[in-house]
Nucleic acid binder design. Structure first.
Length: 667
DNA sequence: ATAGGGTTAG
């Protein structure tokens, strides 16, 4: 959004000077208003200064000051302010706003207090909203209260703009109750008042209160929604109820003046609620309507690409970012790294990281997670150390990244080391995510009982992640007793999640307890739980192919199965034997006519082998945990065909190369 | 001549 605007205004200036025609003062000032590029503005400024009487016109000076602020140069605005002989209240108002708009609230408030004390200029109804905004952005409650006092004395507290600014000031400094009473006592309210109070609740974590008001606007025929309403409700919409998401979509569809912000907000609602396909579909719709995405749009869409492993779209977005010269931009670069990592492209993630001009804790966390997810724990740890050396303090999430890296690579000692470090050296209180990593680490190292003790001693209530990690460990180490306990908790926490029933039946199957396997099966049936069908996705030449078990719908089905038969022969030579317990991966009957050979992972691998270049990496994404038989097969195939195969299952990445997997056969 | 709310990353 920024760059096209910049180009247009720059062209305006070029045309202006190249035309050689006489340009009216009015036209000149109009270009000052439109100008968003500092270098162009300086040319315009020079032109204004050379004209009489325009050069001494306060209106022209005001426009120039405003333009300097919009170009991100409050110092330029200040220069004009200082040079001007006329110093009325408008000059102060514009100068104060220039500071606020450029994040310099301190300078804004300084000038605000000077204007009366030193210059004897009295603030007016334009000044107070700006001064209050300076208090909001610096969370300066004391200053805000003081201004509230002056405003009340002057009777300006009934002013709409002042009231709206007061709401934000109180909410942002942690006083939602005061914000609400300002809102309730306002004689007149417009949509901005509603947005301000909704945003106040929403940003303070009072999601339900925010939603209440959001619904209320719709029912009352009062002010109509605008894009700002959607943006205001956004922070209250993570883990939102389906009904609320649908309501927001309905609002999005019906607001007038749908603009970039409303599109961005709606896309973000989907992206933040694990609805990546909806986010991408809306983005595609936005493109069709020829609305130019900006940095904010891209930062919301990239994570959705990562969630879906939509690499070709992700790459297109990267190209767009480069074409529009949006980099360097910390947020975008962080989002890009994450997208590449989640699409299984570690080298690309690394490249983005290496090219960054500045890195914050989010950047480091993203690259540490990237290495961790790909089973490269040692390198992840080394990056974590580099981050500390560079003076960046790890936070909660940074510790999640390093701990999960340890857990994915089975580095128990290192995990313990960092778990202690976060508590002792950084005084961070471990959260469920950190505990989950530790449970996973202990479980992986075979200490299932110890992991269970750890869970029992946790000061917080274990959640699905924790019991899921424990149940996973029980499957690998065939621990029946702890497995039953974990499964029991999981069935109560997430009764509809079929994956855990499958894990439990795997444990029974390994112990040869076939009766219990069928008990689990009938339990699922009685609860009406369907095993989610395994699906593997592979992208070839920018096209996405879905494979299901026993799939014969692909036009190249014959070749795919022929490739599988050929591979089976070679695999047998290498000692492969189909193992029966893996067949129980499928609790349902569906597998009867199918064969292990027809599992979706294998179909996708075979298809990728016959339809992509010889040395290219194969990337597959699937919705379940990889089954043991497919895992064994993938290892062998990577060796037989000399291909690197990266499979992202619902739990982690597996990178197969030369007959081994990066997960170390634990997942 | 000037004002208030609101969107993005691990």
């Amino acid at each position: 959004m920024k760059s096209p605007l910049r180009r247009i205004s720059f062209n305006v200036v070029l045309r202006l000077f190249a035309s050689g025609r006489e340009i009216s003062d009015e036209a000149l000032l109009r270009s000052v208003d439109q100008c968003r590029s500092l270098s162009a503005l300086q040319k315009l400024h020079f032109e204004v200064a050379s004209r009489r009487p325009l050069a001494s016109d306060p209106a022209a000076a005001i426009k120039l000051m405003r333009a300097y602020a919009l170009c991100g140069d409050p110092v330029g605005a200040r220069r004009l302010f200082d040079e001007s002989s006329e110093r009325n209240v408008v000059f102060f108002n514009v100068m104060i706003r220039s500071y606020v708009a450029n994040g310099r609230s301190h300078d804004a408030l300084f000038l605000f207090s000077d204007m009366v004390r030193l210059y004897g200029v009295r603030p007016d109804n334009y000044t107070y909203p700006c001064a209050l905004k300076a208090c909001s952005s610096s969370e300066n409650l004391a200053g805000g209260i003081q201004i509230h006092g002056s405003v009340t004395k002057l009777g300006l507290d009934s002013n709409l703009f002042v009231g709206n600014a007061l709401i934000t000031m109180y909410a942002r400094s942690g006083n939602c109750l005061d914000a609400r009473s300002v809102f309730d006592e306002m004689p007149h309210r417009d949509i901005v008042s509603w947005n301000a109070i909704i945003a106040g609740y929403s940003q303070s974590g009072l999601a339900e209160k925010a939603m209440e008001l959001f619904r209320e606007i719709r029912q009352s025929r009062r002010p109509r929604f605008d894009a700002g309403t959607m943006a205001s409700i956004l922070p209250a919409m993570s883990n939102a109820k389906q009904a609320d998401i649908e309501l927001t979509r309905a609002v999005f569809d019906e607001i007038r003046g749908r603009n970039l912000i409303s599109w961005n907000a709606m896309i973000a609602v989907y992206a933040n609620n694990s609805l990546p396909s909806e986010a991408l579909n809306l983005f595609i719709k936005m493109e069709k309507e020829e609305i130019e995405p900006d940095v904010v749009t891209l930062a919301s869409v990239l994570p959705a690409c990562g969630d879906l492993s939509a690499l070709s779209l992700g790459k297109k977005l990267h190209e767009h970012i480069n074409k529009k010269q949006m980099l360097p931009n910390l947020i975008l670069e962080n989002a890009l790294m994450d997208m590449y990592a989640n699409c299984g492209c570690l080298p690309e993630a690394k490249e983005v990281f290496s090219n960054m001009k500045g890195r914050d804790v989010v950047s480091w966390t993203a690259i540490i997670s990237a290495y961790g997810m790909h089973g490269r724990g040692r390198e992840a740890i080394s990056l974590f150390e580099q981050m500390k050396d560079s003076g960046i303090k790890p936070d909660h999430i940074a510790f999640v990244s390093v701990l999960s890296a340890c857990s994915y690579s089975g580095l128990l000692d290192d995990g313990n080391h960092y778990f202690d470090m976060m508590k002792e050296r950084y005084q961070l209180v471990p959260r469920l995510e950190h505990y989950a990593c530790m449970v996973d680490l202990l479980g992986r190292s075979g200490q299932v009982e110890k992991a269970y003790d750890f869970v029992k001693k946790m000061p917080v209530e274990p959640n699905e992640r924790i019991w899921g990690a424990l149940l996973g460990a029980c499957r690998v180490h065939s621990n029946m007793s702890v497995g039953l306990i974990s499964a029991d908790h999981l069935f109560r926490l997430v009764p509809k999640q079929s994956g855990y029933y499958v894990l439990l039946s795997n444990i029974y199957a390994r112990a040869g307890r076939w009766k219990d396997v069928s008990v689990v099966r009938s339990l699922m049936a009685s609860k009406g739980i369907k095993k989610s069908p395994g699906c593997s996705i592979v992208e070839i030449g920018g096209k996405v192919y879905n494979f299901y078990i026993g799939d014969r719908s692909h036009p190249r089905t014959k070749e795919i199965y022929a490739e599988l038969e050929a591979l089976l022969g070679k695999m047998k030579e290498a000692g492969y034997r189909a193992e029966t317990d893996a067949a129980l991966h499928d609790v349902e009957e569906e597998d009867k006519e199918g064969h292990l050979l027809a599992h979706s992972e294998k179909l996708a691998i075979a298809f990728a082998l016959i339809s992509s270049g010889e040395k290219t990496q194969i990337r597959i994404t699937m919705n379940l945990r990889m089954c043991g038989d497919c895992h064994r097969a993938a290892k062998l195939i990577s060796e037989i065909r000399g291909r690197e195969i990266v499979i992202k299952d619902c739990n982690r990445f597996h990178r197969f190369e030369g007959g081994v997997c990066s997960c170390g056969d634990y997942w």
